[in-house]
């Protein structure tokens, strides 16, 4: 009973709005500090790779961006499912707020991958399993965003796009295991749970710092975006009226 009330408390936009507002500065702070440390380590401290030279430094943004884009997709599909099954408005909004950031990280992943592929493999792009399934994820993100904005009623838009997100979720494990299932040009797992890492510890640490920085960045921007969506969807409710009147008079936020 107490547990269900706890979740009800946070699933209400009225309580989530101020709560998430307190989280954002922390996420921004963590992202900024860790990105500064990660960039300093990645560009100035870590040694060049013995085979790839300095081109490997793209790893410090390529891997975090690709990981985040896949994690965001799974989280987005998860929120979409919660919204669809239990009819939770806040979950629907969370799913929608994650999509643009996920799409941006997918574009960054493709772009940095191409620029790393050219000096390493001799080609910007090849139609192999890993790259093709990853490109499909970009189309899924774009389809999701387009479908959501094409339907005027936000509840119906959320329901229709949730189905697309959930069905498209099958693509994420295919991307992940593609290097195992098929012969691809892309290298197999370098860092994976349950196996010893195959890269130098300083390089691994720098990459992990960037991964955490990208996590914090994602949390910050998706919370800011979901707060915008909450204001727009709840604009006729009394708590938004009170909040905005207070903020325009006292010039807060």
């Amino acid at each position: 009973m107490a547990k269900s009330r706890f979740w009800l408390y946070f699933s209400s936009p009225k309580t989530f709005y101020p709560f998430s507002g307190k989280l954002i500065p922390w996420c921004v702070g963590v992202a900024a500090v860790l990105m500064a440390v990660g960039l300093y380590m990645g560009l100035l401290v870590t040694p060049p790779d013995y085979r790839m030279g300095d081109s490997y430094r793209i790893i410090y943004i390529h891997v975090p961006a690709v990981w985040m884009s896949m994690i965001i997709y799974m989280v987005m599909a998860g929120w979409a499912a919660v919204g669809l099954i239990w009819n939770v408005k806040l979950a629907e909004m969370m799913a929608g707020a994650l999509a643009p950031t996920g799409a941006i990280f997918t574009v960054i992943g493709l772009w940095t991958g191409a620029l790393w592929g050219r000096p390493t493999w001799g080609a910007y792009w090849v139609w192999d399993a890993r790259l093709t399934t990853y490109l499909v994820m970009l189309f899924l993100y774009m389809g999701y965003i387009a479908l959501r904005s094409a339907i005027d009623d936000p509840r119906r838009a959320s329901k229709a796009s949730a189905l697309l997100a959930i069905v498209g979720g099958i693509n994420v494990p295919i991307i992940y295991f593609s290097v195992k299932w098929w012969n691809t040009l892309h290298q197999p797992f370098t860092v994976a749970p349950g196996q010893e890492s195959k890269i130098d510890p300083t390089m691994l640490w720098t990459m992990m710092i960037m991964v955490i920085a990208f996590w914090a960045y994602t949390l910050a921007v998706s919370l800011i975006r979901v707060r915008c969506d909450i204001l727009e969807r709840e604009k006729n409710s009394s708590w938004v009226a009170e909040l905005l009147q207070g903020s325009s008079a006292g010039n807060k936020q």
């Binding site: 300095d54 943004i61 620029l115």
Partner: peptide, 18 residues
Amino acid sequence: MGGYAGFVWWSYGVTVVF
């Protein structure tokens, strides 16, 4: 960047812009 300036800086630059 050890001769890889174009690849490295275009990667980082576009990421920062996005």
